[in-house]
Nucleic acid binder design. Structure first.
Lengths: 109, 109
DNA sequence: TTATTATATAAGTGTTTGCTTATTAATACA
DNA sequence: TGTATTAATAAGCAAACACTTATATAATAA
């Protein structure tokens, strides 16, 4: 890993909203519309954050019908560091459980 | 550590020039004028980077005559993570040894 | 087909970043 | 006393960033 690769990696992680996204992804794979509910952000804002995380290869996307399901890239060389950093952070206020309770959890077959 | 503290921490580290500075500091404590030689950057540019690292409490400063000697803050709670991240990076091209060879190493009593 | 849903992308905006040059402050030395 | 030397700070600037609203694309449902 050279200095510019490390810079890109740390900049991709180093945003509080993207850390919240990554923290959620430690628990479950999610789609854009679920993040907009969980984080109270607009759909383009989330999409743009996912694009950055994707460019850093921190996440993977899978198209499923109308949805794009995002997950952590557990094969990333620095995945253990990412998990360690995220483990230092508290759980976000709104949980995936409240999503389910509100009937907003997406279940795509 | 909350999300904004982690963001500040990662942003402080997440710059290729600041990582070079930190990598040098793993080997030795250095002053601004030595960094300008090692990194071929202007004095204010280095000073401003040190200010950011200081605000993140990643480095400590000690005034010695005309010089300010900077060192790694080994008491920082996330110091082990920092060392691990820096260990993934190659040694910078210009070494502290070439500084000494060029008679540019500062020795302040 | 048409409408709806989920997402991506484009364009615009205010803020932050990392430099630059200029200046100031403080110490050391002649 | 000056006069270097070292470093901090100020002001200015171009580029990057994180959002916004508007629009485009693609899949599903009626």
């Amino acid at each position: 890993m050279d200095y510019f690769q490390m810079e890109s990696y740390l900049k991709a992680i180093g945003d509080s909203n993207r850390m919240r996204i990554l923290k959620y992804l430690m628990k479950d794979s999610l789609c854009i519309c679920e993040f907009t509910e969980l984080m109270n952000m607009t759909q383009p804002a989330i999409s743009q954050h996912m694009k950055k995380l994707k460019q850093a290869e921190l996440v993977l996307e899978e198209k499923r019908g109308r949805w794009t399901i995002w997950s952590l890239n557990i094969r990333h060389a620095q995945y253990p560091i990412l998990i360690h950093l995220l483990s230092l952070l508290p759980e976000p206020e709104r949980t995936i459980e409240t999503l389910k309770a509100g009937g907003k959890k997406v279940v795509c077959e």
